[in-house]
């Protein structure tokens, strides 16, 4: 067991070092002078150039530069944005809650629908329901979400006028931020005393379309996984035994099958994290959602390399750490795997 965890930890550290190295190299591989790229100016005199070179540590050998970079990253110094002149870490911190809120609501929407859909498809295998749900989920999986988002805006915002087109909350509300998650912050005492529940509803309405768009692909993945996991479990001997005992079908499904089918579903759920981040980049661009996805795309357009480098590094760290945690939780949830590791 200890061996397993240390191997996982070692794997994680190696991947993180690798990612740091790629991000470090990235700026050096971009065509053009890295010094001018990093300070974001074109015409500076020679003294200023040399000073910048020294300040950035670019006059040292590459390996030393990398060690310096790692040291800085560990201390939380990810460089300074060329555009805003603010530390990249601050820029990231400011936008992260928006992406987190969107991702959580999107994932909630996906799971909330996907698990019942998957169970229904498995229980009614090879019927119209099954074909319909699985066909739908394949369509969801194939969905170009950047079009899906625009199509939903067209229907629900332009034609029906139900949902707002962009942003996180109506402009007239000024919500003091505590968590950065608007759904929570709008429920604080002072906001409720001043404005009632109106800001909360506004934040919720702004979340509807983006979270549907973001949740579509995870919804498809989780529904398919739920179906196959259930089919696997439903063919097990203990299910046959439970049925033979005369147990009601709903009890068989929700008590016996559900718990065992849940393990792969939980893993899939956590592994959807990657597609959520990818989705967030596109979704935030469509809905002008002020999160990290939109920030990274904007940084790319303005060639703000320190911001791109720092942003990608943080996202990669989050994903690698999450995946490692998922592996560990998977082992913890699955007694069979645990005993296999112990022997």
């Amino acid at each position: 067991m200890f061996l397993f965890f240390s191997k996982k930890a070692l794997d994680m550290i190696l991947t993180l070092v690798g990612i740091t190295f790629v991000c470090f190299l990235m700026i050096r591989m971009v065509p053009g002078d890295p010094i001018l790229l990093m300070i974001g100016e074109r015409n500076i005199d020679k003294a200023a150039y040399e000073e910048a070179k020294h300040n950035l540590g670019l006059d040292k050998p590459v390996m030393l530069q990398f060690l310096d970079y790692v040291k800085k990253v560990i201390q939380g110094d990810l460089g300074t944005s060329i555009v805003s002149k603010a530390p990249v870490w601050e820029e990231f911190k400011e936008r992260f809650p928006a992406t987190l809120e969107l991702s959580l609501v999107g994932l909630f929407f996906a799971t909330f629908l996907a698990i019942p859909f998957g169970i229904l498809a498995a229980v009614k295998k090879n019927t119209f329901f099954d074909y319909f749900l699985m066909g739908g989920s394949l369509a969801g999986y194939s969905m170009p979400i950047f079009w899906w988002g625009l199509a939903l805006i067209l229907i629900f915002s332009v034609h029906l006028g139900i949902t707002p087109v962009s942003g996180r909350i109506a402009i007239e509300y000024d919500v003091p931020l505590a968590t950065g998650l608007y759904l929570l912050d709008t429920l604080s005492k002072e906001v409720r005393a001043a404005e009632g529940f109106a800001p909360f509803w506004s934040a919720l309405r702004h979340l509807i379309l983006p979270s549907i768009v973001l949740g579509t692909i995870p919804l498809a993945i989780i529904a398919r996984m739920t179906r196959s996991s259930f089919l696997e479990v439903l063919s097990e001997d203990y299910i046959r035994t439970a049925r033979a005992k005369g147990m009601s079908e709903s009890k068989v499904i929700f008590v016996h099958a559900f718990r065992n089918a849940l393990i792969p579903i939980v893993t899939t759920l956590a592994l959807c994290f990657g597609s959520i981040i990818t989705g967030a980049i596109l979704t935030e661009t469509i809905f002008s959602w002020p999160g990290i996805g939109k920030w990274i795309v904007a940084s790319l357009t303005s060639r703000d390399y320190p911001a791109i480098q720092g942003g990608i590094l943080i996202i990669a760290f989050i994903i690698v750490v999450t995946n490692t945690l998922v592996d560990i939780i998977y082992i913890a949830l699955n007694p069979r795997m645990k005993s296999a590791l112990l022997t």
């Binding site: 794997d11 190696l14 991947t15 690798g18 990612i19 790629v22 991000c23 990235m26 591989m29 971009v30 065509p31 990657g274 597609s275 981040i277 990818t278 980049i281 596109l282 990274i296 790319l300 390399y305 791109i308 990608i312 996202i315 990669a316 994903i319 690698v320 995946n323």
Partner: peptide, 24 residues
């Protein structure tokens, strides 16, 4: 295997963004 794990650590579009950021 290590290299592949490494490519898979980043979500596809994000990784592609890194490459496009470098190559243009």
């Amino acid at each position: 295997i290590r290299l592949m794990d490494f490519v898979m650590a980043l979500p596809s579009v994000l990784f592609a963004i890194v490459i496009v950021a470098v190559l243009g």
